[in-house]
Design a binder for these strands. Structure first.
Lengths: 201, 201, 201, 201
DNA sequence: TTTTAATCGAGACGGTACGTCCAGTCTTGTC
DNA sequence: GACAAGACTGGACGTACCGTCTCGATTAAAA
């Protein structure tokens, strides 16, 4: 008689609440944004803030790191569209998109997360894969195209170029404010020019 | 006549044991080196490892961060002696001294610490002051001297140059190994040359 | 219609484990019986002995006194059945039941507890209410019945009589052994007779 | 030659300060009188209150019990002078002297001490010897004299009589207030008469 | 007068237990 | 079954005292 059969068999029982999931992720990001570091973060605090039982969290994530990694992934900024007019313009676009974030919470969370990333192996792994790697690939592509078009030196090691570009950006991101160097909208061009031209006269 | 007067009057009571202090710091570094992150680190474990009462720790440091900051400070690598022959040689010396550390434990601890640093405000502050800032000053001095002697472009923003040099080094330090770029002895020159010459042909 | 309503609504969440509660009380009594005084008793030792987390203890009792008071209450010896044949027989029954306790642990615990009782106000209060007062009431009833039936002097102050009976018993209980006066089975009658007849010829 | 010889050779070095000793005992009694039980009492608190180093306490007493026992001994009330006119008068004098104490602190301390006494073996032993036993001997002497003079029954067991007298007094001392029975000046006679006459008509 | 030696106060030492907090798991009744 | 609520064991937290141990400074008899 009843041979009703879905392809991906919907499991019996009450389905998991998407609302709860969203509330948990939001609560996690809120708490991080409020200055709570990843290790100060407590599952209990997240559950309370999200109005959710601890079980509901542990049913979805094995531990805090998994949860935080997932939560941060929801913030990953997509690589910005590149004008493509020149290597310089593309890099400026990338630098600018890195520095500014309209959403204060997101920037705050990203900064905190970056700092803690390498203490939490699985967080690191996931976070790198979803948020860092795509950006790296984009920069790498620009560099390689530049070498091909002759805009960049032909003997350049792409990885080293990458290190210069991203390292400088990250350094400024982290220490810049304390040095009177902000990554404001007009600063992108200056930074990119310095990298392109080098220090020697 | 005898108005002899000690400058800093020794406080009453039994003086604090330097041996205990040393044991605590060593235990802390050992545990960090064994892979225990700063937040996994427990005062009780440190006390047990050091063969010391918890009180003896709390008498000296208000909390874990203070202790870790102090412990890390004992590892601060001195800025290497600079040859002074040229900006290039000086920078190579600085880059090389950053990459390598004979003591495996120290390198391990430093790496872990750097990663966690900005999650612990006071740790950060102290650590920066004692271990980062001296190095920054050294690089800055080299850059400024280079501008003065004409070895570097005269229109260079010293802070921006700093960001390029240190940012690149830190990036390579952190991500380099995973990219096939090690900061080995011969690599220093390549990196410094790339920075000095820039990416443009 | 269906306005069915339980009087005391069962609270949400997992109910407290009766097994744990029992284990805690037993562990407490065991430790006291093993000679540990109330103040030597440590919550940690109780938790370990009971195989229970400290939290589980603190969830139920605010502090050591509350726990000990409750634990002792479980030992309260019921007032023995009184023959009722005469005041003398009833008092002998009461005196006898006080002296002997088949359960060595219980006697030990009671003795220790009695000694410490008045140092712990709340312990005292609870312990008196549950273990002392019923006995007092029983003696008082016997005395008052004796006055009514003419077995005791009609001008007797019942409270004073009570003091004589129980004070003498307690004194013997505490100091008797050191004076060659035990409250053995045959002794009850002698004591009661002395109290009834007075010291005067 | 040097035949100089003191009987009790005064030891070399600075003699112990009597002032410190007195201050320690006073501080101990003060703290007990302020409601601190013997086990709540801390050596550190005593030292602080007495303005004395902990060493100075431990040099004189091996532990808290020894100190408390000694401190209480300084409060021992002497057995009152007995009129000697009759057993009844003597007992009344004894009962009265037990109930009242001009010094509120002393009474308070005694009450607390009595309650805790048997939890601290050495305290108990010393306290009994110095404060309880003399009184017991006095009562015993009165009883034995009474038997000899015929004021008391000739077949009386002196120890049992003792138990009745002191047990009743102690019971009233402890529980009396809560029962509306105080050991005030006029009450002594009533109590003694009840004991002497017995409960039977 | 100068030792010499035991005392003093202060306070650090290695420990034990405190009462709190949270992790990660388990157990209810309801949806 | 998933859900919230909340109990469970376990373990680190930072505090308070324990009884012991240095310290430099007194203090008084012996040399």
């Amino acid at each position: 008689m009843s041979n009703q059969q879905t392809v991906t068999a919907r499991p019996a029982g009450r389905p998991r609440s998407e609302k709860a999931e969203k509330a948990i992720v939001e609560a996690t990001l809120d708490l991080i944004a409020e200055g709570m570091g990843v290790s100060e973060l407590s599952i209990e605090a997240i559950a309370a803030r999200a109005g959710v039982g601890k079980t509901t969290i542990y049913r979805r994530w094995a531990n805090k790191e998994e949860l935080v990694a997932d939560a941060l992934s929801t913030l990953k900024r997509p690589v910005p569209p590149l004008p493509g007019s020149s290597v310089r313009d593309d890099l400026i676009a990338l630098v600018d998109s890195m520095g500014g974030d309209d959403n204060a919470r997101n920037r705050c969370v990203m900064n905190i997360a970056m700092g803690e990333a390498d203490r939490y192996p699985s967080l690191m792994e996931r976070f790198v894969k979803r948020a860092i790697e795509p950006r790296r690939q984009a920069v790498l592509a620009v560099v390689e195209r530049g070498i091909a078009t002759g805009e960049l030196r032909s003997d350049l090691d792409p990885q080293l170029a990458l290190a210069m570009i991203q390292g400088t950006m990250m350094y400024l991101n982290k220490w810049g404010p304390g040095l009177g160097l902000s990554l404001g909208p007009e600063a992108g061009a200056r930074v990119v020019d310095a990298i392109l031209d080098g220090l020697a006269p």
